[in-house]
Computed example of a mutant assay.
Amino acid sequence: MNPLLRAEQAVLGSVLLDPGQLSHLDWLAPDHFDRPVHRALFAALRKLRADDHPALAADGAVPLSWVTDAVDEAGLHVRGLTAVYAHTLVSACPRPEHAPAYGRMVLEGAIHRSIAQHAVRLHQAARADALRGEVEGALHHADVLSGVLDDLARRWGTEPRPVAPAAPPVTAPPSPPPTVRADQVAEDERFLLAVLAEQPRAMGQVVGWLRPGDFADPAHGQLYRCLGALHHRGEPIDRITLLWEAQRRGLLADGMLSGDQVTAICDGVGPGSAEWLGEQVIRSSVTRTAVTSARTIRGLAENESLSPGQLINHALHALGPLDDVRTRWRTANGHSPPSPAPASSSNGPPPARVHAALARSTPHPIPPSSAPTRSAPGPAVVRSPSRGHS
């Protein structure tokens, strides 16, 4: 028999044997029980207690009316409950005084079940948003899941904090994205890369919030990384320098990219808005990240060996990437101010490394068409647009 089922039966049996045990189970709610008949019976027992049932004041043996009245009350809300099953619950309880321990088992099962259910809803909302080209449904369900995790942490008596699991959870293979939408996402990524290669100034519009990991195609993400590196160093950007940077990073040798791919992306580009295209790319990244987070959390919830505290903290950690891409999505849409420019932060590259990178370009001045948006004689000013946009 399922251990969780035994725990639910033991809780109910302990209260049927000793009504006073309800005073030790105030933190347990009817919806924490998995089976509807158990939920209805526990709710009935709590109602009898609220109504000051005579059994609560009885000394010695518990009157039979405590059992029969509970069955009658629960029978108003669920079918199939009989006095025979109530006596089965009584026999399933080894020790009535252990009711709080049995109740914690029931709550633990409810925590796993609730987190799994909300992860499924997040997954479904993200898939639907991906098909429609939206993000609001996924972000709403992510907020709901985050609130559920905080509430469950308080009920269990633990401090909610993101903690990475020791080993990645086992999850099912990801569902393939809708073909039509996947093709559109790939086209948007290629078009964005072409615009950035053709209009180097446009990098300043997206570099502050768009990351290589936001691209669905890893090759496109690596090509964007190359564009970002050239922009960061203040070097000229065109199809030749882009191809050279890809070779320098080993992308041509390991088969991630080919020269023909780079040429095909750079050729035939028309006018386009890098900012608008970047928003399309990060929008798909939001729903894709939400799907990944949901699948990870569901895998964690289905791992019965995790304690509730571990499960809650690992689930919060799995929501971290979604929180990050959501923040950048809001920045791209003007809902919040852009993050401070990394160039002025203590986490930026050491000055010596920056000057060494810039030195590689000093023999050949940057052509006017490839110059950054803010032109200035010093290399430090040339680098400033690469760190954000306003």
Rank of each mutant, 00 (worst) to 15 (best):
P168V: 08
L152P: 06
E187F: 05
A182C: 04
T171L: 06
D183P: 00
R161T: 14
D183C: 00
P177I: 05
P173M: 00
P174Y: 07
A166W: 05
V170C: 02
Q184Y: 06
P177F: 05
D151H: 09
W156K: 02
A164M: 08
V180G: 04
P169C: 07
R161G: 13
P173V: 01
G157K: 06
P173H: 01
V163H: 13
A186L: 14
A172C: 06
P168T: 07
P169K: 11
R181N: 01
A186R: 13
V163I: 15
E187C: 04
P160M: 08
R161I: 12
P178G: 08
E159C: 04
D183K: 00
D183L: 15
A172V: 10
P162A: 15
R154K: 12
T158Q: 09
G157N: 04
A166N: 02
P176H: 03
T179A: 15
W156E: 12
D150V: 04
V185F: 06
D151E: 14
P162E: 12
R155Y: 02
A186I: 11
Q184A: 12
P169W: 06
R154Q: 13
R155H: 07
W156H: 13
D151P: 01
E187D: 06
V163A: 15
D150H: 11
T171G: 01
T171P: 01
E187R: 11
D183E: 15
P178T: 08
R154N: 09
